[in-house]
Structures are given as C-alpha cells and as structure tokens.
Design a binder for these strands. Structure first.
Lengths: 361, 361
DNA sequence: CTGAAAGCGCTAACAC
DNA sequence: GTGTTAGCGCTTTCAG
C-alpha cells in the first residue's frame, strides 16, 4: 500500500464533481447520470490511476463479495475442483478464498474462524471433518454454507449439499464389469475417506444385488492399505484361477494405477484376467497403458449447482447468469433429505475393462 | 454478515474498559497491560462471541496481511505449488489469494488489477505472461513482487526471482542417460512453455556438450506436439536400431507417461531399448510401470525462499521464523542477474532408466 | 496503564 | 442530477 493512495476525493476534485457522484459512476448505480459526468469522472479516475479500495468498500457496504472454500486437501481431484470453483465464482463477480484442512478438525476450525473474520458472504465446505453440531454453532445464523459430498447432514446448518452419486456410479461400474464377463468382483476400499467410501460401498453392494442370479460368483471388499502387500496380489491371482476373469473397482485413479502396475509387473494380464475401474477420471488414466476405465465427475455440474444454491440465497440472481445451469442435470434422490442433490457420474470406458483382447496386454 | 455484529465497543462495555484497551489486548500490543485486564477482555470477547472484522482492521492499519499469487494454471505441478505456497504463507500469519491466468495476458491483467484493488501487501507471480514493461507500470512503486521461473527480468520491477534450475537438471539427466549407455539422446520440447522450455533446452545441450567424446552419437530436439503422430515413434525405433539404446528427456511427467505407454504399446522395451526421464516427479510416475525416473522439484525450498524475499522486505522477520530456510539450498548463478536465485533439482532414479534388465520390461 | 478522539476510504440516505 | 453528511469497525496517537 502506498504512502498516500489516490482516493475517491481526489477523483471528485479532479473531475469537479462531488464524491457521491464519483461513487455512483464507479458503481454504475441506477441513479440518473449525465453522459458528460460519467465521462468526466472516468477520465479523471483513469488519469490519476485511481484504484478502488476493496477493504473500504466492503466495510462500508457490509458485504465483502468474498466466498470461502474449505477443502480436505489440494491433491488429485481437489486441484481441479478448486480450479473450476474459482473460475465459476469469479465469473459471478466474487472472490474466492481457498483453504485446505487435511481432514484435521482443528485446522478446519481455525480456517473457518479465519474466513468468518474476513466476513465472507458464504462458505463452501467439501467433506467437513467436524461434526454437524460444531459446525452449526460455529457459523451461527450468520453465514450461509453449502456442502459438498456430505450425506445426512441436518437441514438447519446448511443451505444444502451437492453430492456426487458415487453409489450410482459404483453400481454402474459393477454392472459394466459383470457384463464384460467378470465372475468375481472386488472393491478396494479406502476407509480414511469415510463418507465417500461408504457411498462407494453402498453402490458396489447395490450393483452386485442387481445382477442376474449367478452372474457374480464371488464379491469382496478389500481395504486399500493392503495395496503394498504381496498377499493381496496372491489373493487376486487365486481369484483369477478360480473364477476366470475378476473385476476390480478401485477407490480412485491413483489406486487403480498402482494396482494396474503391480499386476502387470507380476505378469497378470490386464484386461484379460483382471479388469480395473478407477474413480475421478484424472488425466493420467488415459495416458497410461492400457488406459484405465474410470468414473468421471462432472465438476462443472457440481460446482455450478453449489454456487447457484449459495448465490441465489444471497439474492444474486443476475450474477448467476454467468454460470447457467442449462444442461447440468442433478437429481433429488427419493430417499434422503430434500436439501441434498446428487450429481450423476459417468463411466468412461477404456481398454482396461475391454472384453476384447487388447494389443499391449 | 449479520444484521448487527458484535464490535469491539460491545466487548469494551462488557469488560468495563475502553475500546483502546480491548484493541491492545486483542492485538497483543507491546503496551503494558495488567493480567487482570487481559483476562477480563478475553473473557468478555469469548462470552459475546466477538469476531474481529478483518476488513475494518485492514482499512484502519493500512495493511491487509493478504498476499496474491498468480499462476499460469492449476494443473499438475501447480496444484502442489499452490498448496505449499498457501501453507507457508498461512504459517507466517498472512492470507493468500490465488488466481490462475491460463497464460492469457488479458486475464492476467484483470487478476492483477483485482489483487491490487484488494490492496494485497505483496505479489507472487509464476511465469508472468505480460511483458516486464507492462508489469512495471502496473504495480507501480507500490506493491512488492516476487517472480517464479522468470529469467532475465529487469531488476527494478521485482524484488527478485526464484527459479528452478531446469538447465542444471536437464544436464544431469543427460549425463545419467549417457552413463546408462544411451548413444542417442532426445529432448521432447514443449514450445508453448517458452521460458522453462528454453532452460531445459539449454541444459540438454550443455549436458551433451559435457559428455566424453563419442559418448553420444546423436542428439535431437523434437517438439512435443508430435506425440500423437506415428512418425515420432518410427523415428525413435529407427534410432534404437541404429544406435542401440536411446535416452529420452520429456518436457514433463505427463509427456513421459504418454511416451512410455505409446512405446510399450508398440512393443518397444523400456528401459532396455529406450530410457525415459520426466520432469516434476508427480505422484503417478512412481505408480506406473516401469516407474519413471524424474527430475524432482524441491517445492518447499522454492516457496520458502520466495516468501522470505517478500516478507523480509515487508519487515516481517519475526513471522518468517515459522518457515526456516535451514537446509534449503539455493544458488546464485555466476552469470545472470544477481536478483535471480536458482533452486537445484534432484534426479529421482527409477526403473525406467535402469541399466539392469527390469522385471516387467 | 487507560480513555477520548481523529481518522482509514468508501457507501448510502437524504436534502438541494 | 448533484452535494452533504453520517457512519462501517478498527487502530492509533496523545493526554490523563
């Protein structure tokens, strides 16, 4: 900050009008203004190199045009998420402050506090680690909050939750694997990610339940912490011998890539003997060999819905035109709270689950 | 923002002291305060649920404790970068606002303007797309700026530049590949990334120049836009036939993974026939098969140096203790401007460049 | 050690 | 259409 910044007063003097007029011009307020005046003010501002002071404006109008986003981490999918989020929010004329909490409730609390001290107009939280009661007390009645991937949160603490349909996606993956001839199905579960893992498990089981009788001879859920252990691969190889082809649903693309590599390293044929489905559809899944089938997340869909939820609550209907909802389908599930909506996932089919023999396998 | 927020005045009343005292207590100012008073104020604040208004404080003290970061994108390495950056800055008691400019000078200008309107105390820019002259005029004498990966910028527009030693790293990669028996060396160049690509090329050539006579029979620079073309792989296969083993330095890990996959798909043996080195050491390079050798970036080193540069300029020596520089080596190159420092890179050797036969190859 | 008072730069009524 | 004025909530002299 310079020693003496150029203020609205300087502009007013230089343009020969009052400061109210300058403020009106600069904010394109709906008061009648002569073209003449507008030009004069704009020229003066330009000439002086005037730059509005956001802090002062925020303080005065009791609104900051700043939104907060709390993420569990910045890795993998969350990087893309932050990106899309920031873009959407900027397009609506808001500023976004992003924090990552590493799933640590203490850090999360500190970040929330910081954001609240900045008087953000609204909050987005992706998989809050703290319990709902704490969150409720924390944000008080003041700041509206929208959640991502939060199942069964009480209605009074949030405006709503925008959830990915992991359950539906997992079920679809199961069907796909079964249709490709997998007689044994395995889900690699990451228990650290409680809520999302639970949804995946639900979907996995639902998918199994929906298969034609006898289509699946064996199914199993294995924790991903065993990825580094030899035993896991022996188990899988035994499954191959016993059931022919086995289908693997990994917790995410990273796990999928690890398994793919470890299996091929041990001479297992992918996809002939084992077929793999990842989750997130990260860039690298289509670059590796064989390319990995993955459940894609429609980030824009998810983000747009969330921003709409929040900004329409703030009465910003006009700003929302910058991020139209057209073509972005979300479903309100029959069961579960009404304020939770689900964003469908899309299975991107690639060679790692192809029934036909593949070149490099 | 609530209708009526709890102010310092409320706290003062409730604690039975003056507002100045409250402010002093809350900011742990170095004025003498009785323990009694401190407790009274803190209790009152706690009881009332007082939360300081950052906007008001910033306005009043003419300092925002906010720093801006402009990135070319959020993808790959930049995600990690943003993460480390944010963490470091928070630890020093500052807030970080991150923007991504997609290498678009117009967007970059807008973002800069926004950040300046927020009266950020300082700016970090990673590979600014706009020319130095514009940047100079833009930030004026007001806001200190530190650059990342900016070579040969004039000294007067920035506090300094913290650059990755791509040149040294590339040279090291070349030596390594040659030592593993590669008689032909190829660099896959990404021309879109002007500055960093240039450094890699310099290093590649320097590395070649430093080899023992006859160690390298052929070297070549190929643009990465040809990664999708069949011709590239034919060329490489011909090189293999002609020179035995060929070494590949990719622009980054993504390109490395693509090449690895495409080559194996075509039956080329990695690493026996072609050895690959990537850049960035992203997570997935150690997950794929064979794991890819890659030039690692010491993010913390880079970030800490940059934050030190900026905050020490702001007179925040005390805050910097949260991110000690110990163990983080940077070099001031003999040639080149004195305000540019180089962060060394580290070659992480993995099976993709292993001279010994590899299991799954 | 504490308190009164003058801003920080901008917005929003409300008169002119 | 334009100007005056009273804040927004906090910091910071500077007397007591």
């Amino acid at each position: 900050m310079k020693n003496r910044q150029i203020t609205i007063i300087d502009v007013a003097k230089s343009a020969g009008v009052s400061i109210a007029t300058v403020s009106n011009v600069l904010n394109r307020r709906n008061v009648p203004l002569s073209h003449e005046t507008i030009r004069k003010v704009e020229d003066a501002a330009q000439a002086l190199g005037y730059r509005r002071n956001v802090m002062a404006a925020s303080l005065s109008r009791k609104k900051t045009f700043e939104l907060g986003l709390i993420l569990p981490s910045f890795g993998g999918y969350f990087a893309d998420f932050a990106h899309v989020m920031q873009d959407a929010v900027h397009r609506c004329g808001y500023h976004l402050s992003v924090y990552s909490s590493y799933n640590n409730p203490e850090l999360e609390k500190r970040h929330l506090e910081t954001l609240l001290q900045r008087r953000v107009d609204g909050l987005f939280c992706h998989g809050l680690a703290m319990p709902p009661e704490l969150a409720r007390k924390f944000v008080g009645e003041g700041t509206p909050m929208v959640l991502f991937n939060a199942w069964n949160w009480p209605e009074d603490v949030t405006l709503g939750a925008v959830n990915l349909d992991f359950a539906g996606g997992a079920a679809e993956a199961v069907e796909h694997l079964a249709a490709q001839g997998c007689q044994a199905l395995v889900y690699i579960s990451k228990q650290r990610a409680r809520a999302t893992d639970h949804q995946r498990q639900l979907g996995f089981l639902k998918g199994i339940g929906g298969l034609a009788a006898g289509a699946c001879k064996h199914h199993e859920i294995i924790p991903s912490v065993t990825l580094g252990e030899e035993g896991l691969y022996q188990t899988l190889v035994e499954h191959v011998q016993k059931y022919g082809s086995v289908g693997l649903l990994a917790f995410d693309d990273y796990d999928a890539l690890i398994m793919l590599s470890r299996l091929r390293e041990r001479g297992v044929k992918v996809p002939e003997q084992i077929k793999i489905v990842g989750i997130n559809d990260q860039m690298f899944v289509s670059y590796c060999w064989p390319p990995i089938t993955s459940l894609a997340i429609d980030l824009e869909n998810q983000v747009f819905h969330a921003v709409h939820l929040l900004l329409s609550h703030l009465g910003e209907a006009a700003a929302l035109e910058a991020i139209p909802l057209q073509g972005h389908k979300a479903v309100r599930p029959e069961e579960g709270p009404a304020h939770e909506i689900h964003i469908p996932m899309k299975l991107m089919r690639r060679m790692s689950t192809d029934a036909s023999p593949c070149i490099g396998g």
